[in-house]
């Protein structure tokens, strides 16, 4: 017994020494290659798993999966209540309202966020007094780290009831009463909170890039008589366009994947808000894909329903991949005179 323990200890200390001693380059290379290929294998495995799980939903609906028709919530209900016989599983789904909801919340927040973040980054880098800069920088970084569920709680406890009880008149509610109910949980609240969520990280990226614009470029413009605003707009912001694209891509990824907050404030109805409705459009509810997945996760063990949720997940994965490709492609022509990420 004792000899065994001693042998174990010896082996352990041998391993510890092997780890502490400087490693030869060959071994380092192999170990690190192993670790990083583990990441690749994990991603490939995940994509494969999700797509295999999702396939029945896509194959039963074909391209009309992406179309509109019927009510998506009733279709989800029918899928959940499929008969027991696997041959009679219900798969019919027209996911357009969910896709559209994902698209408008994300696009709205990213467009708003890009404008706000570029302007505030300009302010932070060029115009803000030193003391303001010293406070704002860390605060922006802190904001970027706030968990989304906190935004969701503030939204559901404060903003949604306020919008529902004070901003939406009963006349407006009754004007669309036969189509959709306006409760305050709405597109506008979802987009605004999403914007607050994604802007800090964009400000951080864009202001880092603005700071790294070579002094010679801006001083050259100043020597030619341009004022600070003009220098910023014509030299610095043009130079950091790749960084702005990178920030927008990162923000879009976060907005696409946001589930909890959107499930709390977006209204949770599979409804496609209609821009023709004028102001009412902004108060109409919707439900993006990621929020649909978390809301319905307790139904995962019902086979056709789970496969449908995996189809949503597959689409989100696919859009994330398309997004990073598109971001890379958009950056190429800008890189020539640009700096940054």
């Amino acid at each position: 017994m004792t000899t065994e323990v001693a042998r174990g200890e010896a082996r352990f200390s041998g391993l510890a020494r092997a780890l502490r001693e400087p490693w030869p380059d060959r071994r380092t290379e192999r170990v690190l290659a192993g670790v990083s290929s583990l990441v690749l294998v994990t991603i490939a495995g995940m994509v494969l798993f999700v797509f295999v799980k999702a396939w029945p939903s896509f194959s039963h609906n074909g391209l009309s999966w992406f179309g509109s028709g019927g009510n998506v919530d009733q279709q989800l209900g029918d899928i959940f209540n499929s008969p027991a016989n696997p041959d009679h599983y219900v798969y019919k789904l027209r996911a357009w309202p969910l896709l559209y909801g994902t698209f408008i919340t994300t696009a709205g927040a990213v467009i708003l966020g890009t404008v706000i973040s570029v302007l505030s980054a300009i302010f932070l880098v060029e115009f803000a007094p030193r003391r303001v800069r010293a406070v704002m920088g860390p605060v922006v970084r802190l904001l970027a780290a706030v968990p989304s569920v906190i935004y969701g709680l503030i939204g559901i406890l404060v903003i949604v009831p306020f919008v529902g009880n004070h901003l939406i008149s009963s006349g407006r509610k009754e004007s669309v009463i036969n189509v959709v109910q306006l409760t305050g949980a709405s597109l506008i609240v979802a987009v605004l909170i999403l914007t607050v969520m994604i802007t800090p990280i964009m400000v951080a990226i864009v202001s880092d890039a603005l700071r790294s614009v070579p002094r010679g470029w801006t001083e050259g413009a100043a020597a030619l008589g341009a004022n600070r605003w003009r220098i910023m707009w014509t030299v610095s912001v043009r130079a950091v366009r790749p960084a702005i694209v990178a920030a927008a891509v990162l923000a879009t990824a976060r907005a696409l994947g946001e589930a909890i907050m959107l499930s709390m404030v977006s209204g949770s109805v599979g409804f496609a808000p209609n821009p023709v409705d004028g102001i009412t459009f902004f108060f109409e509810p919707t439900r993006p894909l990621a929020a649909t997945i978390v809301d319905n996760a307790d139904g995962l063990s019902v086979e056709p329903f789970g496969q449908t949720l995996y189809a949503f997940a597959a689409l989100l994965l696919l859009s994330a991949m398309a997004l990073s490709l598109a971001g890379w492609a958009a950056k190429q022509p800008l890189k020539r005179y640009g700096i940054g990420v």
Binding site: N71, D73, Q74, N178, V179, V180, Q181, T183, A185, S263, G267, S268, V269, F271, P285, R287, V294, D295, N296, A297, D298
Partner: peptide
């Protein structure tokens, strides 16, 4: 009704 708002 399909316009009902759903909660998880």
């Amino acid at each position: 009704s399909s316009s009902a708002s759903q909660r998880p």
